[in-house]
């Protein structure tokens, strides 16, 4: 790090203190508390707590409901972030070319950022309603053609569509900025050496976009989880048959509806570990391939 100019050490801590206090209270303390509760049996409404060792973990890991929820969470994280980053990448590559529609597209593709995940959930659940929505006529022709309330595959298609819609802006902005920072000379040099547009995409654009792609993938994995709650709460409520009961949603219902504080905290610890692992795997395997030199 460069640029350290002032040497007033107490001022350094004084300036950083407000943010550190807020972070301690509402980021680090909730994590510590989750670990505490995971090893205690917490009574709701301040009814006392009792150390129980690994009993909570044994209970949670012994339930098949937990495992299907964890599986769905992992699947959702991978597919939701994958589809939204892929869509944003394709759109960014297209918008990077100087076309007539590019300026309009660059403006409009950022609009979904202004729509909350819960709002787009409310909207999509209406548009894709099997009896009242846009696909209802097809259901009249072929009964059962589209029913996200009973068909798990349809439910997930609906969720991913809403998630992609909502997640385009951030990835699009970052990826497009990365593409535009690639010097034109590289394109020209590549073209002179006989590389066609597809070849240049593979050998120039994508490798040089590495840092941005990496950032976007890492952030999108965490974002897909935090956005999933708004979508699930308004679209599926965890159904059909618990198929979309992701851990984020399960923890909420276990904790706030069933008052199983210890169980919810134990699953919180496991979920945080899962996210940390996925992020760690990305750093280990993806970041190695990223080339930061331009």
């Amino acid at each position: 790090m460069k640029q350290a100019i002032f040497r007033a050490r107490f001022l350094l801590w004084g300036l950083a203190a407000p943010q550190l206090i807020v972070l301690f209270l509402f980021f680090y303390l909730p994590i510590i508390l989750a670990f505490c509760w995971a090893f205690h049996l917490e009574q709701p409404f301040g009814g006392g707590s009792q150390f129980v060792g690994l009993a909570n973990f044994r209970r949670v890991l012994g339930s098949s409901e937990f495992w299907s929820s964890a599986g769905a969470t992992l699947l959702y994280m991978v597919l939701a972030s994958g589809t939204s980053v892929a869509a944003a990448l394709v759109l960014a590559l297209a918008a990077d070319r100087a076309l007539k529609v590019s300026p309009l597209a660059r403006n409009v593709f950022i609009w979904p950022k202004a729509v909350a995940s819960a709002s787009i959930g409310v909207i999509f659940v209406f548009i894709l309603n099997p009896f009242l929505g846009i696909l209802a006529p097809l259901n009249d022709l072929w009964p059962g053609f589209w029913n996200p309330r009973t068909n798990v595959l349809h439910t997930y298609i609906m969720l991913f569509a809403a998630n992609v819609w909502n997640a385009i802006p951030f990835s699009f902005i970052i990826l497009l900025a990365g593409l535009q920072a690639i010097p034109q000379e590289l394109h020209r040099a590549g073209a002179m050496d006989g590389a066609g547009p597809w070849r240049r995409l593979r050998d120039i654009q994508l490798p040089l976009l590495g840092p941005q792609l990496f950032v976007v993938i890492v952030l999108e994995v965490a974002d897909s989880l935090s956005g999933s709650f708004g979508l699930i709460d308004t679209m599926t409520q965890g159904g059909p048959g618990g198929a979309t009961n992701l851990l984020v949603y399960k923890i909420y219902s276990d904790g706030f509806k069933a008052y199983d504080l210890s169980g919810a905290a134990t699953q919180t610890v496991i979920l945080m570990a899962l996210v940390a692992c996925v992020t760690g795997v990305q750093y280990l395997f993806l970041e190695r391939k990223v080339n930061y030199d331009r």
Binding site: L23, F26, F27, L29, P30, I31, L33, A34, W37, L219, A222, D223, L225, S226, F229, V248, I251, Y252, G255, F256, L261, A264, A265, T268, L271, M272, V275, A276, T279
Partner: peptide, 12 residues
């Protein structure tokens, strides 16, 4: 703090 959003630790 960027890696773990508030939604994950909602209970505590």
């Amino acid at each position: 703090s960027i890696m773990l959003p508030l939604e994950l630790m909602i209970i505590t």
